[in-house]
Design a protein around this nucleic acid. Sequence first.
DNA 1: TTGTAGGCGTTATCAA
DNA 2: TTGATAACGCCTACAA
Lengths: 343, 343
Amino acid sequence: MAKKNTTIYDISKKLNVSVATVSRALNNHPRISQATKELVVNMAMEMDYKQNNLAKALKSGETKTVGVIVPYINTNFFSSVIRGIEEELSPHGYRVIICQSHDDADIEKKQLNTLLHTQVDCIFISISKNTSDLEYIKKVISTTNTPIIFFDRKKDIPGISTITIDDHKGAYQATEHLIKEGYKNICHFSGDQNLEIYQNRLSGYISALKDHNLPVIEDNIINTGSSIEEGINAMKSLWKRKVKPDAIFSASDFTALGVCKEIKNLKLRIPEDIGVIGFSNEPFTQFMELSISSVDQTPVMMGKVSGNVFLESIKDNFSGITIEKKLVLTPMLQIRQSSSRKK
Amino acid sequence: MAKKNTTIYDISKKLNVSVATVSRALNNHPRISQATKELVVNMAMEMDYKQNNLAKALKSGETKTVGVIVPYINTNFFSSVIRGIEEELSPHGYRVIICQSHDDADIEKKQLNTLLHTQVDCIFISISKNTSDLEYIKKVISTTNTPIIFFDRKKDIPGISTITIDDHKGAYQATEHLIKEGYKNICHFSGDQNLEIYQNRLSGYISALKDHNLPVIEDNIINTGSSIEEGINAMKSLWKRKVKPDAIFSASDFTALGVCKEIKNLKLRIPEDIGVIGFSNEPFTQFMELSISSVDQTPVMMGKVSGNVFLESIKDNFSGITIEKKLVLTPMLQIRQSSSRKK
DNA sequence: TTGTAGGCGTTATCAA
DNA sequence: TTGATAACGCCTACAA
């Protein structure tokens, strides 16, 4: 029934040597003769020996496993970041556990506890929309040895490294691009302002307007969620205004898509009558017959950098230093048809 | 420096009881007095005790962790399946480790070994395009206790449960739908024929033609990959033929997208001149201005069912039975503009 | 160069 | 009802 794995003890018996010798041979320990080493290694191969990671982890305190908590795994952005983390860490022998918070702070806390419980070596988090209990995370930092790293959706907490993109800059460039294309009355569809990323996109929009001497109009900043539906509805009510916009910079691609659909519905032309630009560079934006301009967040790169920050922190740890890094990646403006009015 | 976790040993010392007592109290063991149990539980709470999963796993042989191997994690299909697996298993205390094979059999084998090595309780795999070494997997099955479960991209191996969708049926319905819309000369862009899913889509296409007394023409079955580019090129060369097709059933949505782009380029109309239908129900298919018909694979459901098959197998295992399940989910045809010629 | 033995934190068996 | 102790499989001082 139960198929037992061979252990170093089994090998030691077979070879009439001690388990210590076997362990040393298998770990390339310097203090062992070449001859016995080969003997052991061959026997291990023959007996199909597989090191028991559990025992090793129990002894060493390192599980060679990291955890990632994201709102949902099946979105282009988060799955791409996870891909980056996996590809950066996998070659170094780390496994990646994924958890979903369903964009809920309570579930997020539970997942965090589970990962702590699993004794992962590091936890990567992109926080949920309604996360506000920073004390809890601070407590984790101060009472455990498990480093936490924030990516994209972060909060500023001492001791926590963060990897983000420059949302302000991305939004600034997007808005500036619209201005240069000759759009004058640019509205911004902002996302959930509890998240820094959306705050920054909003501030980038405002900065660009100011720098180009355009008025910042309160009513032109419309608080939407990130769905197609909300884009449609917001555009609908916007078009009932006396003074109509000639461009929309949306903090979300899905909302931008909704905008495009409604514009078409209103029998207006993109980009001639109205310019549109989104954020995230979702795959569909480039597939559309009328492709949608967007801001690429380089998610795979973000994942790789996040993984690398962890790897570097291990090195640093040997010298007893803990460094808090704040890395900011540069977004990439993708100009497509929906915002290219000039030839 | 090192923040040590409290262990049951710490609690036992504090309370002047044995570790065995502490362990029993914490595990709701029947043979313990209510009084001491409360004493221990409260002290554990006070000392912020967290059970060490590693030690428990080492003792019990169960890690409460499963592994998933997919070609790439950042695709809609695979990330959705993983979401389903996570959501089914997480409530039962399981963690999910994700691995990418990069659609390569060698890497896949390495990842499989890593997971075995990590002593996960189950491994879910959607095999890579060029996986052919079935002996290796059979060996894993026969020499370890770790169950393997295939989803979507499978091979038939005794002892391995599989969860797939009925690709034949999905393809059949898609083709039949085209026929009913009045298309007569339907071409099929098939995927990699090393994978069963694509074989089945091809056979579904053929069956539908036969059942409706349409000729199965060898030249109408075009072996493409799954990229936009290949869709464009295939369509291009197809249009140089004397006898031109009036519909394309593509085994991939991306190829279908390429087809649509090329059709537009050729100044032809969809669906009037040519009907198009893809497979997978990628998000973009419904977002397009001219939405693309497709076959939904219900990936989240596939993940949940996969997870459930594992959970059930644990129950069965208590009775010493190992059941090999072959579950087939029903695909959902999504009819959209690209194939709706009739009103 | 090799062996002995203790410990990582739990659970389970056997006594008491 | 409780306690002592032996595993689980590995690594690593310390001895030899």
